[in-house]
Design a protein around this nucleic acid. Structure first.
Lengths: 339, 339
DNA sequence: CTGAAAGCGCTTACAG
DNA sequence: CTGAAAGCGCTTACAG
């Protein structure tokens, strides 16, 4: 690219490269006229320092890496996290390397790990989504500072940023109970195997039991799609004691539940209340608009970067979990039960 | 991070650092036993070459940058482009720097340009979205190889990757005409000021004029949201000769149009056909599911990387435009007109 | 084939 | 305060 180096600037300003370096780094304490001259020459020559030389000399990369493990990193969920991470990284003067872990590569038995992320080109790593064990091992080997977003590693002491899944679910279901509902069902995505969903289910259970309610309304589904929610709702409506409200552990299944209910001739929310989690864009657009537990995804991304920078500065710090609070968003898919 | 250098590996294997370097780069032609030994020692020592030293020595960065200019880079549209770019960059052994240009920074008068992207840390740049003039100037100054996705710079010779907006719109509207529609309206997002929308409108017009139809049905709206589509449709339905079909230049406005029509007591598609462009996730989920012109966003991202690598290898190549073909996706929001 | 050495473009003690 | 010099960790002609 640009072929002008610090040497060119030094010659043209009649000073040493050391002085140029100092001026450019704001470390120059001498004659202001010299300072001004160097700056002007640098601008004139369109000088751009070589990042790699600088990093080699300084020993720090001034870069972070983000790795996302999501079938599709383009949904609101991961996309918003990414944006939060980018914002906060930039605010702190860090570049950001972006990479994706493709689940299908694992299926193929490939050990593919993002090139350049584990090879010293980064001061620390943010990992969003379910952690792959092989990757975790490599990160540990490299003793790379790490923050996981929206997941963690069972039995390992690792820094992570989550939303307050338990609290959010608990509040939401308690509110449903306050509306008069007793028969509240729960659609459990991914068979409840993922931490975030599991925690939401726990919040749901706790709210019921704190209210002295016992109701057998949990349905496990494999995925996270409207179709999954649809099927689960079909089952639920066949129950001898069908629910008056459904808590979907994810907006998508809640939307599938609405579709199914409407197809069965039920009105939402008059005949059936439906509640989601996440507040994706579609939650606002569906009919009726979905009442849901909002998760502050960008904030989670920002917090993750802050934690990571702390970890980089103080590697001995004990890893901890940070919960970003949720918020119940009232829209039109919930009301009191009729009976 | 890792403190073991090529020198350590050399000592432990009793060879020179030159040999280690050759072995590690697959350039070693000597004794296979030596090769094996070096490799083994490197693994044992958990040696990771310092990327920055390597890049400084080689003179190439093996990195690309992607800059996205979107209010929210997390929608399907830009998210999918990003994923395509990441895939193809990785496939070619390149790291990817990610950055966002925030429109509000421009509004604030800030000249904020992604740090580290223009300062030699990248071999080339992919820019998705509307190009900011100040940024374009800086990229030109740095003579950084550039590919723009989903936009271009008026009057400048710049490599770009677009979807075939004209062709996609043309085919879609022609199909609507084949169904028997004559009064086909068009909701023009962003007042038609953005290239992609403008091209879609041109395709719409051409299809009408090729069929000998003249109908005054274009409505300009400011944004790209369902609300914009809703308002536009209110206007259209008040017309003395209301349309029997509406072509939304973007899925979101098409969805707003459906909502408005249903609210006004019209059935979709029986009383009004609605057509979108993009095939976002919501197109499948709304009611009725939206017939739309699918844009292959990931493919656009992949193509952009290929073009960029060509440009890097052959900087004298004349910049050109690549169109990724679209595809009409038939769902349930369109039918023949009643009258 | 292999090693000693120069060089990539910076930063930063170290003298002066 | 400022310059000459060493050093960051690699790659790669250049000799041998």
């Amino acid at each position: 690219m640009s072929r002008v180096t610090i040497r060119d600037v030094a010659e043209a300003s009649a000073v040493s490269i050391a002085t140029v370096s100092r001026v450019l780094n704001g470390l120059h304490r001498g004659d202001p006229a010299v300072r001004r001259r160097v700056l002007q020459v640098a601008r004139q020559l369109n000088y751009r320092p070589n990042t790699f030389a600088r990093r080699l000399a300084k020993g720090s990369t001034e870069s972070l890496g983000i790795v996302m493990n999501a079938i599709r990193p383009t949904t609101d969920y991961y996309g918003d996290i990414l944006q939060g991470v980018e914002e906060e990284a930039r605010r702190n003067g860090y570049n950001l390397y972006f990479s994706v872990v493709y689940p299908y590569l694992r299926a193929l038995g490939t050990e593919e790990v993002p090139k350049g992320i584990l090879d010293n080109s980064v001061d620390g790593l943010i990992y969003a989504g379910e952690m792959r064990p092989d990757l975790y091992e490599r990160i540990k080997e490299a003793s790379l500072p790490l923050v996981i977003v929206n997941s963690y590693v069972e039995g390992e002491d690792v820094e992570c940023v989550m939303s307050d899944n338990f609290g959010g679910a608990y509040e939401a279901v308690r509110w449903l109970i306050g509306l008069g509902h007793r028969r509240i069902a729960c659609i459990v995505c991914g068979r409840g195997e993922v931490p975030s969903v599991r925690e939401r289910v726990e919040g749901y259970r706790q709210a019921l039991s704190d209210a002295g309610i016992s109701y057998e309304g949990e349905v496990l589904v494999d995925g996270y799609s409207p179709e999954d929610g649809y099927k689960a709702t079909e089952e639920l409506l066949k129950l001898q004691d069908p629910p008056t409200a459904i808590f979907g552990t994810v907006d998508e299944v809640a939307i599938g539940a609405i579709k199914c209910a409407k197809g069965a001739g039920l009105r939402v929310p008059e005949d059936l209340s439906v509640l989601g989690v996440n507040d994706l864009d579609i939650a606002r657009l569906c009919e009726p608009p979905l009442t849901t537990v909002r998760i502050f995804r960008r904030e989670m991304g920002r917090v993750a970067v802050r934690r990571l920078l702390e970890l980089i500065r103080e590697p001995s710090r004990k890893p901890a979990r940070t919960d970003v609070p949720c918020e119940l968003v009232h829209r039109e898919s919930c009301a009191g039960p009729r009976d």
